[in-house]
Write a protein that binds this DNA or RNA. Structure first.
Lengths: 190, 190
DNA sequence: TGGGTCTTGGGACAAATGTCCTTTTAAACT
DNA sequence: AGTTTAAAAGGACATTTGTCCCAAGACCCA
């Protein structure tokens, strides 16, 4: 699924408009750029204003597993900034992306001093845990075909927006298996 | 793995000791009791003082998938209290359990007014996202045998603490497959 | 004591998924 | 226009995992 977070985007947009000291700035990224890299220190929190990214982990086996696709309003980097640990995933753009960027220090300051901001962060983290858990459970107890069906029904323009490779990595399967499922479900005909 | 959270337990213990208005109370639960039930409203946040619980989802297929085992200091109910949504999992005791219980209102008040508490909650949620994501990715890209090996090495007394059925549900496999993996790894001999 | 029933372990087979490889198509570059 | 590279589709076979079923032991209890 493609995660979005309208509320957060609205709030950040408002903050940015009032921010005279340029603590929240707009940045752009071209296709294929990594905004955060696995196993590195994270200095900024990002909020997507426009565009699509993938959030993925590279396993010791060399396989990439896509955690989620992030769309408008989605936030990343916040986990690492909060815990101070290295990033466990890479965030890479799939389209040209515009986003807001906040430094670690500013983010932590906002959490501390802006109770609305704090509440939004708590909510987005709670939401992340929920959907991650649900998806994990779903993946473990359903076959590829069912997983693809679910994904397709929530993102009807799936195949035009995301490459086969990325879809396969999101479902945690090989392209070969994905192709089989597409065939069985007749999704290639539509 | 069995999750624990020493820091949080310490802080709650301190809070409870100073709490004259009994907003944080100690409760006990017998084996097999459900402290939180999937798809129901959540009125309390719990912190485990002593004992072991499983956190699991029941799928539409009837399969249970165990998200995590929670040990001392681990917190649950906080997600639902923060977002106001129904619980997406069930928390059930595997041993007799003692825990601290905080009402939704008190929990939200603490988050708002106690910045140390707030920070601990942010951290524990960030940690939950991290390990959930890592485990999901690991499960998708490794075979049962590897997953069991990893689990076993992090919980050597696995088989005495947790039933076969629960281990299988944690790994997201059938008991038959678990038995095969145990055999192959020679874990039944030790 | 002799059934019930529950747990455990595993055989035999079926279904799901992965691996390897080839062909085709499409896009990109010079 | 021709060459190169990447993406897509799928055949053939191997491996992994699940399903179904049966047998052995443990425990209860009327």
């Amino acid at each position: 699924m493609i995660r979005i977070n309208e509320k957060f985007l609205d709030y950040i947009t408002k903050l940015e408009a009032m921010d005279s000291s340029k603590e929240i700035i707009k940045v752009e990224a071209a296709i294929g750029e990594a905004l955060i890299t696995q196993k590195t220190n994270v200095l900024f929190v990002y909020i997507i204003k426009k565009g699509l990214t993938k959030c993925y982990l590279t396993e010791d086996t060399g396989n990439d597993f896509i955690q989620e696709f992030f769309g408008e309003g989605e936030v990343f980097g916040e986990l690492e900034v909060i815990t101070g640990e290295f990033s466990f995933c890479t965030i890479e753009t799939l389209t040209p992306v515009e986003c807001y960027r906040i430094s670690k220090e500013t983010f932590l300051k906002l959490i501390k001093n802006d109770s609305i901001f704090n509440s939004l962060v708590l909510n987005l983290m709670a939401t992340k845990i929920r959907y991650t858990a649900l998806r994990h459970s779903y993946n473990q107890s359903h076959v590829i075909e069912d997983r693809l069906k679910g994904l397709y029904s929530s993102v009807p323009d799936l195949f035009t927006r995301i490459t086969k490779n990325d879809i396969a990595n999101y479902l945690g399967v090989t392209i070969r298996s994905l192709n089989r499922a597409i065939k069985t479900l007749d999704l290639d005909r539509s």
